[in-house]
């Protein structure tokens, strides 16, 4: 494994770097380097072309003002990013970054921003903001984070990351008792023993098709969910060198034990505003 260097592309780290998002990249780096895999990180700000040799792409989140600020840079990177996506390079896109890599983002004043077209999703900035703990049941088990969004994202018929156990998810929930606060009330109702924490409808979160993952889980998302980080590294390694990800080293085992406790703590008593 000595001559293998994993190349991570971090898009727009300055504009979309608020609220710990860069932690996701630090976590990927650490989880690779502890296992003896060297990592090279390219921080790409708007106005620079996408490099051709990339093994993993990350883009973080930020407020709407930062999203608008980052948007002019999207057109320049769009063709390069779509090529990487077609080649099977794994992507993790969070919040505003996920929205900008979609097809369109409609702002509150009706302005429509063209996205990079990597994800076949459309965002509308609208609706009541949801702020609170976020629990999602995925194929990697329970994912936990923090939800803080004032937008809807339509993924069409594509597969989500998973079902919402607590929180709102991609769209306004429909059906009786399906508001975010109603779900919160239902989920936190009663004592901790035997309380049902399943949201009362079929709400889903994010996007996960093939190598592409988009989400509004914050925390940062990889901090609480190391399985997701390892899936990204595994996918990158398999594609790059048909190599398996070595098992977690003792330092990672201890970190993952703590993250499991963090997930359990949040999932046992999620809260929202």
């Amino acid at each position: 494994m000595s001559d293998l260097t994993l190349r991570i592309l971090h898009l727009f780290p300055r504009t979309l770097g608020m609220n710990g998002e860069s932690g996701n990249v630090d976590i990927l780096r650490r989880r690779a380097s502890s296992r003896g895999i060297a990592v090279e990180i390219t921080r790409l700000e708007p106005g620079v072309a996408v490099p051709l040799q990339v093994d993993l792409v990350f883009i973080g989140s930020g407020p709407v003002s930062a999203e608008v600020q980052a948007h002019p840079g999207v057109a320049d990177v769009a063709p390069g990013l779509r090529l990487l996506a077609q080649q099977g390079v794994p992507f993790l896109a969070v919040g505003a970054g996920f929205q900008l890599l979609g097809e369109t983002v409609t702002l509150a004043d009706g302005t429509v921003l063209a996205g990079a077209g990597v994800f076949p999703v459309r965002t509308v900035i609208a609706g009541e903001r949801v702020v609170g703990d976020f629990v999602v049941e995925s194929r990697l088990g329970t994912l936990v984070g923090f939800e803080n969004r004032g937008s809807y994202i339509d993924i069409g018929d594509a597969a989500p990351i998973g079902h919402v156990v607590y929180g709102r998810g991609n769209l306004a929930a429909s059906g009786p008792g399906a508001g975010a606060s109603a779900a919160a009330a239902a989920a936190s109702d009663g004592s901790s023993t035997g309380a049902t924490l399943v949201a009362p409808d079929a709400r889903v979160e994010g996007f996960w098709v093939d190598n592409l993952i988009g989400t509004h889980l914050h925390g940062p998302v990889l901090a609480n969910n190391p399985a997701l980080a390892d899936w990204l590294l595994e996918t990158a390694l398999a594609r790059r060198a048909s190599t398996a990800l070595p098992p977690a080293t003792p330092d990672l085992v201890e970190i993952d034990r703590r993250a499991a406790e963090a997930r359990a703590t949040i999932a046992a008593a999620p809260l929202s505003e």
Partner: peptide, 28 residues
């Protein structure tokens, strides 16, 4: 994850409902 924690060299005890999230951060 945005905070430079290098002025700390250890933590003796962490508590509160967010303790495990902080313990994970200190691990990294």
């Amino acid at each position: 994850y945005d905070i430079d924690l290098s002025n700390l060299d250890h933590i003796d005890v962490i508590t509160g409902s967010k303790a495990w999230q902080f313990a994970t951060r200190f691990g990294y």
